[in-house]
């Protein structure tokens, strides 16, 4: 379970997050929805120990990310694409990640195969398209066979086939008892994939709950979203 509680982040005078609280539960796909700049990435960066909150906590099964003994075997994550250096090959990228994370080498081929990059393992990441970069990022996230997946805008740059594929992958992960937290600004995608919804706007949570409850009273998720975020002006 991912528990975010009372998270506040300030950059100087600017408040990026105020009192952000929500959970992502095992067996569920939780969609983290909000306009660009609403604080989705900031929240996920704090959850993954990349940035420090001004106040509040972000815990993975009760522990902060930095205290996890084998972090990538507990949480698979992807932020801003693959995180691979452009002059390294996909395989070499996964190889050092596996080394650092204590993941057996055989997983490299398995995940390359799983994300459909089996033929591109020796290609330099700089030559990848956005969609291939996303797939490599997912491969790195899946490397440690983690129970939780934290993905920032995972469908960005994927073609329709890729979107369909990732939907199946995430559904399968949650159905097997895993936790999935994914951020997106694409409402139709989120509506298709998620069980639970967290909506953030201007650094504040404006709605949380099962998808059906959040939408209740509105014709579509899109209408609910604009009503809740007040962005429809």
């Amino acid at each position: 379970m991912l528990s975010i509680s009372g998270l506040t982040k300030r950059h100087g005078p600017r408040t990026v997050l105020s009192d952000v609280t929500f959970q992502a539960r095992p067996g569920r796909v939780t969609g983290f929805l909000g306009p660009n700049g609403a604080g989705k990435s900031s929240t996920l960066r704090i959850l993954l120990g990349l940035d420090r909150p001004t106040a509040g906590t972000a815990l993975i099964d009760g522990r902060p990310y930095r205290k996890l003994p084998d972090p990538i075997r507990a949480v698979g994550s992807m932020l801003d694409g693959s995180g691979a250096h452009r002059s390294r090959t996909a395989r070499n990228h996964l190889a050092w990640v596996a080394r650092a994370g204590g993941v057996p080498k055989r997983r490299i081929d398995e995940v390359l195969d799983q994300v459909g990059l089996a033929g591109a393992g020796r290609t330099r990441v700089g030559k990848f398209s956005l969609g291939m970069g996303q797939r490599l990022g997912l491969a790195a996230a899946l490397l440690g066979e983690p129970a939780a997946l934290v993905l920032d805008e995972p469908v960005n740059g994927l073609d329709p086939e890729g979107i369909r594929w990732i939907r199946g992958l995430l559904r399968g992960h949650a159905d097997a008892g895993g936790t999935v937290l994914l951020s997106s600004h694409l409402m139709s995608e989120v509506a298709e994939i998620t069980d639970d919804l967290v909506i953030i706007a201007g650094g504040r949570i404006v709605a949380t709950g099962p998808l059906t409850e959040v939408i209740a009273g509105h014709a579509t998720l899109e209408e609910a979203f604009f009503a809740l975020t007040g962005a429809d002006r």
């Binding site: 990349l50 990310y65 972090p71 990538i72 932020l79 801003d80 995180g83 994370g101």
Partner: peptide, 8 residues
């Protein structure tokens, strides 16, 4: 990002 994910 990848480095600190693997070794926080």
């Amino acid at each position: 990002t990848a480095t600190l994910a693997a070794t926080p």
